[in-house]
Simulated assay, not measured.
Amino acid sequence: MPPSFGDLTYWNTRFSSEENFDWLVADFTILEPVLRELINGGKRFITARVDEDGKDGGKDGKGKTPQILHIGCGNSLLSFQLRELVETAIQIHNCDYSSVVIKRQRQREKELLQTGSFGRAGGREVQTIYPPHILAIHLAYLARPGCRWVVLSYSSSRFSDWEGEGMPQGLPQPGELWKMVKHEKIVQSPDPEDKVHRPPEMHHLYILERTGVELKEV
């Protein structure tokens, strides 16, 4: 039987011995220009807001510098590669619901970067709602208008049903909270050492932007 990817025990067991694994786009040079552009754009957006409001951005520069929330970081090398794109490690927030991988990644981060950006996320799952929908709502509570959400997926239609699917009473439509600003296909270059003909591996990069629709406090 295939492993149950929704089982926390599976991930804790796997992460206890696995050093690192990147599910999507292992070549960071493909993602780097996209992420760098978003981060630089975030700097300009934050500067404009501070100038307009005339308010202090907060202590430690957290309100004046782009913040990156890496959801389901696992043991991906991306967690450490992101450090190359920001000024300080406090701008990166890596989270996963496996306490095992968070403990191991914290130790690895201390050894490599002498910083701390890993934290454990709650593992409660809502079964009656398509997971990306509930994730979009949760993220909307954290994100200011104009915040960008970067998604990597194997699916070419990850967000195609946002407008059509009904939501339980009291929950907003994700499509009202986030608008699609970019959808790009990414083809992984074949391994030159691979002698077997294989179809190209296709990934999809989505960039969504937080709208100005406000959410009620919960």
Rank of each mutant, 00 (worst) to 15 (best):
P2E: 08
P2T: 09
D7W: 05
D7V: 03
Y10W: 09
Y10M: 07
N12T: 07
N12S: 07
R14A: 06
R14L: 06
S16F: 06
S17G: 12
F21C: 10
D22C: 07
D22Y: 04
D27N: 11
F28R: 04
I30W: 04
L31H: 03
V34H: 00
L35D: 01
R36E: 02
L38I: 01
L38G: 00
I39Q: 03
N40Y: 04
R44N: 13
T47F: 09
T47C: 13
V50P: 08
D51T: 15
G54T: 11
D56T: 11
G58V: 06
G58T: 05
D60I: 05
D60T: 03
G61S: 09
K62C: 12
K64L: 14
K64M: 15
T65L: 11
P66E: 00
L69A: 08
L69C: 08
I71F: 08
I71H: 10
N75S: 09
S76I: 04
S76D: 07
L78P: 04
S79A: 09
R83M: 10
I90Y: 11
Q91E: 05
I92C: 05
H93M: 10
N94K: 06
S98E: 02
S98F: 04
S98D: 03
V100M: 06
V100I: 10
V100N: 03
V101G: 01
K103C: 14
R104P: 03
Q105R: 09
R106S: 13
Q107A: 14
K110F: 11
L112I: 12
L113D: 14
Q114N: 15
T115P: 07
G116M: 07
G116H: 10
S117N: 14
F118I: 10
A121P: 01
E125A: 12
E125G: 10
I137W: 03
L139G: 01
R144Q: 14
P145N: 08
G146N: 02
W149N: 00
V150G: 02
V151E: 02
S153I: 00
S153V: 05
R158Y: 09
F159A: 05
E163P: 07
E165P: 10
P168A: 09
L171M: 09
L171I: 05
E176C: 07
E176P: 04
E176V: 08
W178V: 03
K179N: 07
M180T: 11
V181F: 01
K182T: 00
K182I: 02
E184L: 00
K185R: 13
K185T: 13
P192E: 02
P192Q: 06
K195G: 11
V196C: 12
H197E: 15
P199V: 09
P199S: 11
M202P: 11
M202D: 15
M202Y: 15
H203A: 08
H204L: 03
L205H: 03
L205T: 04
Y206L: 01
I207E: 03
L208F: 02
L208Y: 01
E209P: 02
E209C: 01
G212T: 15
V213H: 06
E214L: 10
E217M: 11
